[in-house]
Design a protein around this nucleic acid. Structure first.
Lengths: 257, 257
DNA sequence: AACGATTTGTTCGTATGTATC
DNA sequence: TGATACATACGAACAAATCGT
């Protein structure tokens, strides 16, 4: 029975201290030098391996120049999948959970459709697509990045507000329905977990060490005839969000949870 | 403008080679010693930092004694959230996607309810709970771990098969309804991402470095009166599964995707 | 079955860089 | 500005896993 490497045993010992409350959330760990002494003169590199193991599990966080701290438990936000994901729905969901929403005005762009969009929106390769991008915040901190894609044909058909860099107050879905008579009959979400890209690391302020992951929800909305009318990508940090999906009749969700 | 550390630049260079196809999936990278020479005599530790960066993003995988290999793309499985999650539904979903399901017979256990179960099942603290645990496989590889919890009162009331370590062919939900007249009216899923525990690392055969995460779906099923009747936890490796949720009317999902 | 060669994993020591207070 | 603490980088040695002989 081979025993575990030293850094692993040290990490395990620290993990127990954290989970048992000897080292409470927010508390600073001894410095690497101190831990080195504490654990029988193990090399500072070995201590760093142990801390890295804890860090990759988000049990601790390191801050250059300050120290290593036991991770604070972050309050989870419940992302309701059964509801619309437009601005008003986001605001309502956040307020329901007793928190404060904020949204930047959308950035609008026109690009030619790449492979994914061609498949999701069923448009011609290289045809123009309207992109509406919005940054969202909860309690002043970054919450999510949302990007919606519409066929340019919608704008040509009269839905010109899609090109304006401001919120469509009545909701883009309703707006498209009123302007073009294109009515949403349903949608499909696909949730996937992946590493953040450079822009997401910046926006969310997460460490760039591959430990924090993102949940990406791809929502494709369809008409009754099965024609896709919108493709929306929303990116959330995986460690601060739960995704709630309800089917049939269920009692209301206790928002304290 | 501070430039990036060397290990990061090396990692970025290797990342480009991987993403551009110079290093195709499955290909072995040069050994650490060779890379050390390639990158201007950088120390082997620095090379290892670069590889660690790639590894934490699942771009490469290392195998002691063998080498470092570009990660193979794993075929995603679509987990349908709109459907039941009992054995038959799992089998059907897997077959629909052209793959081969397998399930071990369930392990049954009785435990006293801890805090989470007390809250989810609304049972008395310390009261007995029936636990049914099942391991599931797709194409011979580990797919998911599912654990369902029922109040012991169901067994006392006559649903004795809940205690037997074999599949309830008609489905546990239907069985409970027939035996006890307790009818499921709806359910709520909560998806959350976390690190695997020791048992999950073993079962799924994933590296224990905190890089591979799990998606846990907690499903609580309710009666029309809002009484919880079942609590089910299913654990999936985050990198091999997409979670699909449909609302309203949507065209069928192309299972090739 | 045993051994040696190869490759990654662990541990040490040391020096210097950079962020914070 | 100096002191402190984590981050990067180097060099070295040995351990452990793998594979072919």
């Amino acid at each position: 029975m081979a025993q575990q490497p030293m850094y692993r045993r040290i990490a395990e010992d620290l993990r127990l201290k954290i989970e048992s409350g000897v080292l409470p959330a927010g508390k600073q760990l001894p410095t690497e030098g101190e831990l080195s002494e504490e654990y029988g003169g193990a090399s500072r590199n070995t201590i760093r391996e142990a801390i890295r193991w804890l860090s990759s599990r988000r049990l601790v966080g390191t801050q250059p120049g300050r120290g290593t701290f036991v991770a604070e438990q972050v309050k989870q936000f419940n992302v309701p999948l059964n509801r619309p994901i437009e601005s008003e729905a986001f605001e309502a969901a956040v307020r329901e959970q007793g928190r404060v929403p904020r949204m930047d005005p959308p950035k609008v762009e026109v690009q030619s459709a790449g492979a994914e969009l061609v498949s999701e929106l069923q448009v011609e390769p290289g045809s123009s697509v309207v992109i509406r991008h919005q940054e969202r915040f909860i309690d002043g901190g970054p919450s999510s990045l949302q990007t919606s894609y519409y066929p340019m044909a919608f704008v040509d058909g009269g839905a010109v507000e899609l090109l304006q860099a401001k919120d469509i107050t009545k909701g883009a879905t309703k707006y498209v329905e009123e302007k073009l008579g294109i009515k949403q009959a349903g949608y499909r979400d696909r949730l996937r977990v992946r590493s953040p890209n450079a822009g997401e690391v910046t926006f969310f302020g997460v460490p760039d060490d591959g430990t924090v992951l993102m949940v990406v929800t791809n929502r494709t909305a369809y008409t009754a005839e099965g024609k896709p009318i919108r493709f929306t990508v929303t990116v959330f940090p995986a460690d601060r969000n739960d995704f709630i999906f309800e089917s049939g009749r269920v009692p209301p969700l206790d928002s304290s949870n």
